[in-house]
Amino acid sequence: MYDAGKIITGIVIFLILMTVPIWYVVATGQASYVPDPKVNPDETQCVESTDYMIKNHMVLLDEWKTSCVRDGICTWVASDGETYNTSLAGTCLSSCHPSKAEFCDQCHSYVGIKPYCWNCHISGE
């Protein structure tokens, strides 16, 4: 092999770049951390199913915002026929998910998302 020193340096840099996440989670010890969003145990009924809410809550909240702020329609009919007020603070955070830090932030900080909901809404903490 020619220029062995340079080639091996390059390969070592490549291997380090490829394995950075492994060393990082070993160093922080957070690899097995799983977010644990806390729901008020007295409430059992969300506006839609859990699976739908996990994947689509941002779409729903955005529709709520648009219809209430821009169109002035501040009620919304769920798929089971129930009518809700389209309010993040009034409907979601008031009773079922009282703590932003223990509910919203759990998954959001886990996957590195900073939603701009909180630019306007005050989390109450």
Binding site: P21, Y24, V25, T28, Q30, A31, Y33, S109, Y110, V111, G112, K114
Partner: peptide, 12 residues
């Protein structure tokens, strides 16, 4: 960010 926990702030 899917491979780093906690997510370093510069990635945000």
């Amino acid at each position: 960010k899917f491979f780093l926990e906690p997510v370093p702030s510069f990635l945000l």
